[in-house]
Design a protein around this nucleic acid. Structure first.
Lengths: 216, 216, 216, 216
DNA sequence: TATGAATGAGTGTTCATTCAT
DNA sequence: GATGAATGAACACTCATTCAT
């Protein structure tokens, strides 16, 4: 844990420890994403990580704490990705367009994020509520979206009185729900809503809908 | 044991059988809604239903089949509620407004619907895919919404090219996500998104958003 | 559980259940007596009882409750044995003599009683404290001894001011300690304190000591 | 790390080694006394001692050997305390009185002695039997008590034929049992047998009993 | 002398399910 | 139509101990 400044190149004993922890975390992410918290098996995580099961408890305490670690890591990842979006550098219309497509793409490329959140919400966020780093999970996009909306309004492009938090949640909603509930929706509509064409149509609709709403 | 005075001809056993089945189904709905499929316990269902555990298997085969039965029943319930909406009798703007508020209210008053769907989607709709009555689950609202959109377009009120399926899904999305992910959202935003005032603001935003999109 | 008075001879379904419970209890007594609470293994109890391990939990809840059941049964046994002693029918000297020898013999013939109590005291009586039947465990001998002491005093045989509770505990002490600590005492003294001759000498000493104290 | 100013010639490492060993022994005593052998946790001992767990094995071999070391140390302590008693310098009656009260006080002030012995006897003295220093554990008090009894007899105060070993064991019994079985006794009698007043009454009774026995 | 990393063999407990009546 | 008894397979978690440095 303690690192010495004098020997930065030489990886001391903790090298393998780091590797083990990362292996466990990666395996846990996969397992929890696939089966949810209740369905996940600690044995499978250990096997997948290539470590002794006992080591999981050595490093992470128990299944719940491991799940929280995975969850925090997942949130950290999406927040990092959001940093790369520079909505402030775009004109308002483009910014909204980019926000929708970024959200959509991120969920599409990170199905584990959706499964993890689904499972966590099924259990009333018991893990997340105990997180000490919960503040860091608040998205910076809410504030950036507020700025975009204000700029659009001042330029006479956007309507008045749009609540950035509500809009942020709505954008997340239309992207998330389509993917999180894809299995039941596909079953009921009797067609594959994850086919490339269907996905493209969905993105097009969502962009139109959000812009249709905010534009005067 | 229980005898019915009104229908003496009917064998009393079948009445008890019906009662048992209904008790089981009701208890199962509550248990699955509360804990999801994986977290639900057959023992608790039996206890809550006041019947012997073996009876559950006698009537419903196994836990998976019981879950499917609950799911089908839940879909039947929402479809029945949708029948009571008469979008065809309203002018287009009012029809859209009613559709949003109905969807919102139904999800709000039937949290079990959301939990059940969340759990089912976590498991890739394995149960639903095996349902023989899957066609009946398709919402009649999609067709009704298509009619409303067409009427609005002909009256020059609504924009062109709105896909009714996409819009239907989007309306469901914005209502569903806010509630299904309420626990994590509340934790992260650090405030109670289920407070009465927050709920009213949400409905108002959603109605504005949908109308803002469809209106020319 | 419910027994019908009309068919006393016919053992209904609960016959096997009773047998299973008795098997479990007997095996648990042996295992707990041999290894104490912490060292006892539920697996071994199941195997010894010839039942599925799950059945132990079905009938007794968990290891702690099973231990308490064994403990309560053990106390019930010794109380039953005490009922057979009729100190009130003996003259005071003989009564004291009999009390000592009964206590000694009972402990000697029921080593499980000592092991069980040792283990329970090691854990600060956590199980016993939760017993609902704790009152029934109070020995009737305390009251009987009080009567004996009073009779002996009135006959001018016994000394004044002997507290029956203290004496009862002291009699238990000298019998119990010699047996409970036999292993360490034998090791330290370098001889077998459980040899027949040693046991006889011990009983003789204890009787002398108690009588030497109470007699004027 | 720690350097001693008084003995600079002595290699500092061995001082640390001593310190570590003493820390381990002290922590082990506490842990074994609190939980018995089976319930004690090597991890807790290491943590409490502030040393790495591996060091325990380095110095003491394994858990059993560590327990034996603690046990031997505990016996050494009580023997040392007994040395301070000078029964040979007292008149016989006072000597007996002092022996009882010393035994009582020592057990009262060293509850770990009782727990350790209880645990060891639960396991049939497996550790003690393997001790090489077992002879040193024999109490010098047995011989001293023999002398006291003989002196008392010669002065016409004490009765004839009192076996010093038996009496020594009996004195230990009445002191030990009351404390070792305090938890179950308190639970059954429904009152706190460790309350100061109860303790005083107990000592008084024990002294009376022993003197009542040995005095002519 | 000292330690962080790692592990095999359990440990109590749980679960959906079936047997026998 | 209904039930108490019984089970095999798995579950999260623990423990004393050893490895590698």
């Amino acid at each position: 844990m303690a690192t010495t400044l004098s020997k930065p190149a030489q990886p001391p004993r903790s090298r393998d420890a780091d590797k083990s922890q990362r292996s466990i975390l990666a395996a846990a992410l996969e397992e929890f994403a696939q089966s949810g918290f209740a369905g996940a098996r600690v044995d499978r995580i250990a096997e997948q990580a290539g470590v002794n099961k006992r080591l999981i408890y050595y490093y992470f305490g128990n299944k719940d704490d491991l799940f929280l670690a995975v969850l925090e890591r997942t949130y950290a990842d999406i927040r990092a990705a959001e940093q790369a979006l520079h909505l402030d550098a775009m004109d308002p219309v483009e910014a909204v367009r980019q926000l929708v497509s970024f959200t959509w793409r991120y969920y599409l490329e990170h199905p584990e994020f959706i499964t993890l959140l689904n499972s966590e919400n099924l259990h009333q966020a018991v893990h997340l509520k105990q997180s000490a780093r919960i503040q860091e999970m608040n998205s910076p996009l809410v504030q950036l979206l507020a700025d975009v909306l204000e700029r659009g309004r001042q330029q006479g492009l956007f309507r008045d009185g749009v609540d950035p938090i509500q809009l942020y949640i709505s954008i997340a909603s239309i992207c998330y729900f389509y993917l999180s509930n894809n299995a039941t929706l596909s079953a009921i509509f009797g067609r594959d809503l994850k086919a490339p064409k269907a996905l493209a149509q969905r993105l097009s609709h969502m962009t139109e809908m959000v812009l249709g709403y905010v534009l005067r």
